[in-house]
């Protein structure tokens, strides 16, 4: 059966079609879900794509967490459904309290748009199950507020539970502990700043993103429907 993925579209999202295209290339069916809808429908996984949800007004993700669809995303996550937040989607997940920490402005005050090498720090998550610890993946980053930060207590917890899933090889933005992506305690909710959907074809410089999105689909297929 084809895996169905709900891709949430906020006003200001701009990566939803890239995500849909990348998922289609992996044999999945992506369905765009408008943020004002209240029901995700019958999906096996959810992606919050990159962009500038609600114009990033106030703070990135601050308004998006109140979009009507987010209650359904929260319920899906609580039921164990795989939820992936990419870039702005990661910011939304932290604001919504589905992932710990926050994304602050890049150290150095620069908008970053470059390929980044990432090392897999945990292969036990909905995003990294098809990789191995130590694998190096190349994905583009494209953000101004990607500097991951959290309290010392939260960082200790993330490390103890091996919930940092990806680290930058060469930290571009000042993120604490070189963190590029983290997962929830149940490992089904994952957020990362780099863009796997933009690295799904060798023509684009890397197809390492397929391993991550492929992991998400495999994770979704390997569990009972929510």
């Amino acid at each position: 059966m084809t895996t169905r993925v709900g891709v949430v579209v906020f006003p200001g999202s701009n990566c939803e079609h890239d995500v849909a295209e990348a998922l289609a290339g992996l044999g999945a069916e992506a369905e765009l879900v408008w943020h004002a809808d209240t029901d995700l429908g019958d999906v096996d996984a959810v992606v919050l794509p990159g962009g500038f949800a609600h114009g990033d007004y106030l703070r990135p993700g601050a308004i998006a967490r109140f979009s009507p669809i987010m209650a359904s995303v929260g319920a899906f996550a609580a039921a164990g459904g795989p939820v992936l937040g990419i870039c702005n989607g990661f910011q939304v997940l932290t604001e919504a309290g589905l992932l710990p920490g926050a994304l602050q402005k890049n150290q150095g005050s620069r908008f970053l748009c470059a390929p980044a090498d990432l090392v897999v720090a945990s292969a036990e998550s909905a995003l990294t199950s098809g990789t191995a610890v130590g694998d190096v993946l190349r994905l583009p980053i494209n953000h101004f507020e990607g500097n991951y930060t959290c309290s010392a207590e939260v960082l200790a917890e993330l490390r103890a539970e091996e919930r940092v899933v990806l680290r930058y090889v060469d930290n571009p933005n000042g993120s604490v502990d070189d963190i590029a992506g983290v997962c929830s305690a149940e490992r089904n909710v994952v957020g990362l700043m780099p863009h796997p959907e933009r690295a799904c074809d060798p023509l684009l410089g890397s197809d390492d993103g397929r391993r991550l999105l492929g992991s998400l689909l495999a994770w979704a297929a390997g569990r009972l429907p929510v």
Partner: peptide, 11 residues
């Protein structure tokens, strides 16, 4: 911004 949080705009 809380103390200790980097403020690149301020800098």
């Amino acid at each position: 911004l809380r103390p200790g949080i980097a403020d690149p705009q301020g800098a």
